[in-house]
Design a protein around this nucleic acid. Structure first.
Lengths: 184, 184
DNA sequence: GTCTATACGGGGATAGAC
DNA sequence: GTCTATCCCCGTATAGAC
């Protein structure tokens, strides 16, 4: 992966996340990256190839996050980490996460990288089990609820990314799940 | 409002919701509506004017829904109605709701019809009060949680719109809030 | 109010030099 | 690997007849 190719990828990721895929001309990506427009097509064939490269990159990053949650021993710790995942992603990989969320609403990419891929299903299974171990009556439904919460939290992060707000909300959420008892 | 103008509006709403604003050419709208392309511009000036008309229409519909929630007497009834709102909207006005959600992720329309407009703020206020009346310790935070839940639920409805799933989730959610009430 | 025909610009993509 | 120049289509928008 040459330096300029990498640069194109990063720039495209940022612009797609900020402005959307089809309202971002390749000319703009080239200009922003300080690169000729033709180079984009030399490296990625076409605009969609560029998006696919970004998606592949993202998939890999997500899988890594999930793996680290699954690896935790305590069921409570798993739930704790899952709640914190959106915040973690937003602080570390804001642009990517934004892009993922926007893609859900674009028909073209619905079901591609978003659709329950391996890591997502694995996470659901693991969290269901965690709830079961903690003695929740309906673990499957609890997971559904948690997924909703996480989706909603991510939306909030998009609109209101103030540090104070995030911290407040997070601790409130954790208290709901009695996660404050957890030793960090 | 002439019949064809109305038809254009409905068709555009449907197509924008399905395929997104900027991946839907005006030619397609015209064809689908069985109307000449020129007519669209005669009625709505430009493509954006068409979107604005849709948004105005939507705003009105939403305001009506909120009004009916606010009008409820019991605080618990208000909360339940709020939880049920996404489902109600999805069954009655699916296309519109879908479009609203997708718009949040398009820079152009972020902060336009989505941004906390009158009815949203009113609803938040009313629900905060409802939580307070029910004796919740931190009503403001409870509202935040509920908003998250509703966002998340809406996302779920997009991905998994099976009747059984919706009914299950909904009753689970409601039971959660009833239990909380009894606890306090 | 509605249609047909057409102008115009911009965005994706290619060719070929270096 | 990278750049410059260029092509061409398609989507928005306008003009003008009916």
């Amino acid at each position: 992966m040459t330096e300029k190719k990498e640069l194109i990828l990063e720039t495209a990721l940022k612009l797609f996340a900020e402005r959307g895929f089809d309202t971002t001309p390749t000319s703009m990506i080239a200009k922003e990256a300080g690169v000729s427009e033709g180079l984009i097509f030399r490296h990625f064939t076409n605009k969609e190839g560029l998006m696919d490269a970004i998606l592949a990159m993202s998939e890999e990053r997500m899988a890594r996050h999930v793996k680290s949650i699954v690896a935790l021993a305590e069921p409570l710790a798993k739930i704790h980490a899952t709640i914190e995942l959106p915040v973690k992603l937003f602080s570390e990989e804001r642009e990517f996460w934004k892009l993922q969320f926007s893609l859900k609403w674009q028909k073209k990419y619905r079901g591609q990288s978003y659709r329950p891929s391996g890591y997502y299903l694995e996470l659901v299974e693991v969290i269901t089990d965690a709830f079961r171990q903690l003695g929740y009556a309906e673990p499957e439904k609890e997971v559904l609820l948690l997924v909703m919460l996480i989706d909603g939290l991510s939306n909030q992060l998009m609109q209101q990314p103030s540090e104070a707000f995030i911290e407040q909300t997070l601790s409130f959420l954790k208290s709901k799940y009695q996660l404050d008892k957890l030793k960090s």
